[in-house]
Design a protein around this nucleic acid. Structure first.
Length: 734
DNA sequence: ACCGGCCAGATTTTT
DNA sequence: TCTGGCCGGT
């Protein structure tokens, strides 16, 4: 029965078996954190300490939640449905739906996306006559988010926490924003946590109920919790009997990389004070990486102050391996070439592409690698980037669904009222707004009123009337026709699909495809409301993860993942550590960048290849770059430094001393130098192998036809992606 | 209501 | 260099 325990090492086992009382598990990278968490969950159930619904298990990502769910159910040998297992946001949404009325919402409230939040805030600022040039909505949005991250409702924001905005009106605007959300029966992301925390604070009976319910609490990635999340956890964990405060937090202070999103590394550093008598278990045996990789990572992170302290040691007998390579290159193009070559070489040796990843500091860096991989014909996958549910057509369709689900959803209604065009412009919508505000009614009600009173010209009036009647009809059809059929009808009858059918742009076909995909996804849910909730909280759709592709992503996106081979390009001052992190965060910022570097290195199992380029194009012009200080913080014994491809040795020799391989002589400048003196040889122009009219294929843009050619640059009209200018070598004849 | 031109801004973004 | 947001003209 306790067979699952024998698969653990002593420290892991200690973490699993210390079930009673508060426990902090400091889990270094690759030390079996997830295994401990899931085994502990299962252990609690197997030893009958609690029923499945009496355990609260919290993660940050949907992915982590899914993984935990799968692993728990595999240990238990049964499905893990109905558990309180999920992301902070998903769990809070669930709690809030149970008690929405306590914060003035009804349980079918809408969760707004950032787009909606922004529009709402702009409206509020416009109504308050604020000069949005001088005081941007982005800044206010940021402040509101930070306040919410810290558990501050408008009345709790003190002078010290106020920002300089619109002559001290930020707090008032925040209050107005919250009122509007309430009127709209909507919340933003931050509200999910904020409202629930507020409910738990103000309603002892509700809190007591949860105290009775949740006998055990498990928290993943504790180092990333922000203040509201911390407050929420603490409220739930502080059960009346101190002996029953069974909260287990797992985390790694060295992997805290989200302070800019409100994460408080203090939460983990302070755990023992918050929960007196807490046990602390350190997981330090790393089963993932080779000795040199661990040595490099440990040596680097040792430069940070204020750590909980923890040393990774190889947990495998076969931990010997290649040294971590540091490659110096001439420019970012050569860097991309080097990475491409190594990927090809590994591939020839039988390594799978899914076991390789290129981890960059900033999104724009992916482009150079994408282009290179396309020329080489190496399949890749960009993790992150634009998400399915962020596309216009999906957002529009979702807005229709939201209105169907909740007529009072003004933001959604406003989005679709003139999409497709119904002849309602700014003026019409403003009139509708004014009327709605005067009467304190939702926009839909105002819209009906305007039709009745004849305040509109005949054309918009008729179109609007049709739309509103449509909604009444679709809503009536919903119960007996089912949500999938009803939504399909809605998209047709509202004219939305027609709008794209008549659109001659090359993207239109793809958009219609996406709408079909949306319907398919909708079919997987039992109800419209369930689907809307899912989309609001999840926002992802993973396409065939089986395909063998190189991963291309930011360091942030790579957290929690691991690969045999990891490329870490762009280790240059100003880029990594990023200049802005240094400017805004000072030493704290630098330390977080260093943790990011630590996260990057520890993603690798067998091979880590770090690189930096002496020249990098930033926007328009080339500028020279100083190697990152992190390169100097790597231990020589585990590092092998080398130049780029041999073909470039000559160039290397003529480089300034900043680039002589060890670069100790150059004083480091705080900023990337603006020099840009070196000309880079132009790519040799090819003969016109792709004549105008040639049908071509591009890995990223798909099929298209060449419409113009100039040297090796071709203008191609792509069927899906539209007209693009591309280099001929990125194309294949089709 | 819609289109084209001009200007600022261009890290990271689990939900 | 490329993009998105805003303004002014049709």
């Amino acid at each position: 029965m306790t067979e699952y325990l024998t698969r653990l090492n002593p420290e892991q086992r200690a973490a699993v078996e210390a079930v009673d009382g508060p426990l902090l598990v400091l889990a270094g990278a690759g030390t079996g954190k997830t295994r401990v968490l899931t085994t502990r969950f299962a252990h609690i159930l197997m030893t009958r300490r609690a029923f499945p619904n009496q355990v609260l298990a919290v993660t940050f990502t949907n992915k982590a939640a899914k993984e935990m769910r799968e692993r728990v159910s595999s240990i238990l040998g049964q499905s893990a449905e109905g558990l309180w297992l999920g992301t902070f946001h998903a769990l809070c949404a669930r709690m809030l739906r149970r008690n929405a009325e306590l914060v003035g919402l009804s349980s079918n409230f809408t969760i707004l996306d950032t787009d909606d939040q922004m529009r709402l805030l702009k409206q509020i600022m416009a109504a308050a006559n604020i000069d949005t040039k001088r005081w941007t909505p982005q800044v206010l949005m940021g402040a509101i988010q930070r306040w919410k991250d810290r558990g501050l409702t408008p009345d709790r924001v003190t002078d010290a926490e106020d920002i300089d905005f619109a002559n001290g009106r930020a707090r008032t605007l925040y209050a107005v924003y919250q009122d509007r959300l309430k009127q709209l029966n909507a919340t933003d992301f931050g509200d999910l946590l904020l409202h629930v925390t507020e409910i738990l604070r103000n309603n002892p009976d509700v809190l007591a109920n949860y105290h009775r319910m949740f006998r055990y609490i498990l928290v993943d990635e504790y180092q990333d919790t922000n203040t509201v999340q911390y407050l929420w956890l603490r409220l739930l964990a502080q059960r009346p009997d101190p002996a029953e405060r069974n909260i287990c937090c797992v985390g790694d202070d060295d992997q805290s990389i989200y302070s800019w999103r409100g994460a408080e590394i203090e939460n983990i550093l302070r755990f023992e004070k918050d929960f007196p008598g807490a046990t602390i278990v350190r997981l330090e045996a790393n089963y993932r990486s080779t000795r040199p990789i661990l040595g490099a990572a440990s040596h680097l992170i040792a430069n940070n102050a204020g750590r909980m302290g923890k040393t990774l040691r190889p947990g495998r007998n076969d931990a010997e391996g290649d040294k971590v390579r540091v490659v110096s290159l001439w420019d970012s193009e050569e860097e991309a070439r080097m990475v491409g070559e190594r990927i090809e070489a590994l591939r020839r040796d039988g390594h799978r592409l899914t076991e390789m990843a290129i981890l960059v500091r900033a999104g724009f860096q992916t482009r150079a690698f994408e282009e290179r991989l396309i020329t080489l014909g190496v399949p890749y996958r960009v993790v992150g980037g634009q998400k399915f549910y962020e596309r216009v057509e999906i957002r529009d369709a979702m807005a229709y669904l939201r209105v169907l689900n909740q007529p009072a959803d003004d933001l959604a209604f406003e989005r679709i009222v003139n999409t497709p065009k119904r002849g309602l412009g700014d003026t019409g919508i403003r009139a509708m707004h004014d009327l709605a505000r005067r009467e304190g009614k939702p926009l839909v009600v105002a819209a009906w009123r305007m039709i009745e009173t004849g305040a509109l010209r005949p054309k918009p009036r008729q179109a609007l009337h049709e739309l509103l009647e449509g909604f009444a009809r679709w809503r009536a059809a919903l119960p007996h026709e089912g949500h999938v059929v009803t939504v399909a009808t809605l998209l047709d009858e509202s004219g939305y699909t027609d709008m794209w059918k008549q659109d001659k742009s090359p993207e239109a076909a793809g958009r219609l495809e996406n709408l079909k995909e949306l319907l398919r996804a909708l079919g997987e849910f039992e109800s419209l409301a369930g689907f809307l909730e899912h989309v609001a909280l999840v926002m992802e759709n993973d396409e065939n993860p089986d395909a063998d592709r190189v991963g291309l992503m930011t360091l942030h996106a790579a957290k929690g993942l691991e690969f045999d081979t990891v490329f870490l390009p762009g280790w240059e001052e100003g880029l990594f550590p990023h200049q802005r992190a240094l400017d805004e965060g000072g030493d704290k910022g630098l330390e977080e960048e260093r943790r990011l570097a630590y996260v990057g290195i520890t993603r690798g199992r067998q091979r880590v290849i770090i690189s930096h380029a002496a020249n990098r194009r930033i926007y328009a012009n080339w500028s020279s770059a100083v190697p990152s200080r992190f390169l100097d913080e790597l231990p020589e014994e585990h590092i092998q430094r080398d130049g780029g491809a041999s073909a470039h040795r000559n160039k290397m020799a003529s480089m300034p001393s900043a680039f002589s391989g060890q670069f100790p002589l150059v004083a480091r400048k705080p900023r990337v130098a603006e020099a840009g003196a070196w000309e880079v040889a132009a790519r040799p122009s090819r003969s016109a192998t792709m004549p105008v009219g040639q049908r071509v294929f591009h890995q990223k843009f798909g099929y298209g036809r060449v419409v113009a050619a100039e040297d090796n640059k071709l203008d191609v009209e792509f069927e899906q992606a539209g007209r693009k200018r591309v280099i001929d070598s990125f194309l294949e004849k089709a």
